[in-house]
Amino acid sequence: MLSGQMVIYEEEHQQLTEICERLVRDALAKAIFVVDKDGQLVTATGETAGIDTTGLASLVAGSTAATGSLAQMLGEEEFPVHFHEGTSKHLHVSVIGETLILVVIFDERSSLGLVRLRVKRAYLEMAGVIENLNRKAKAGNKDLDIFGEITDDDIDSLFNDAF
């Protein structure tokens, strides 16, 4: 294992999803995604049909990592917020804590000002959830028993259908 584990439990997943559902309404956004910095999707809300959410997560993480490195080259710790303006759709990306990224997709029904304002509030709530999660992680993952029981046959059978 290279670097430990990122674990999301039901409780925090639920809380993050609720915050996003509220944010979609308050910010008049089209869709909202929470992505982990290594590129995995944590939760998605709003009009996500037709969006390749897995691909989106890896691209957002890649671009955030690249932007973060640019910041460090310039002596900044990070560029915590970036914004991409399109003709009809816009993307507001903000880094939350050490581990997560919040992505808001919006169109002409909303505005950058409104999104910014609402994200700020959601940010604080999300930071609280992450803090809880980190505390749990430090306390040890006692219920992480899925791997202990894996047999060699389980591992072999993984490949039977997919390829």
Partner: peptide
């Protein structure tokens, strides 16, 4: 079992940032 393949490449088909391919395997222990 596969998602979309994302390739960020140059015009000459050299990888510029990364390729990304998500695959799903069957469940183990649920």
């Amino acid at each position: 079992a596969r998602g979309k393949l994302v390739s960020l490449e140059t015009k000459q088909e050299r990888t510029l940032f990364f390729d990304f391919l998500p695959l799903s395997l069957p469940a183990i222990r649920g």
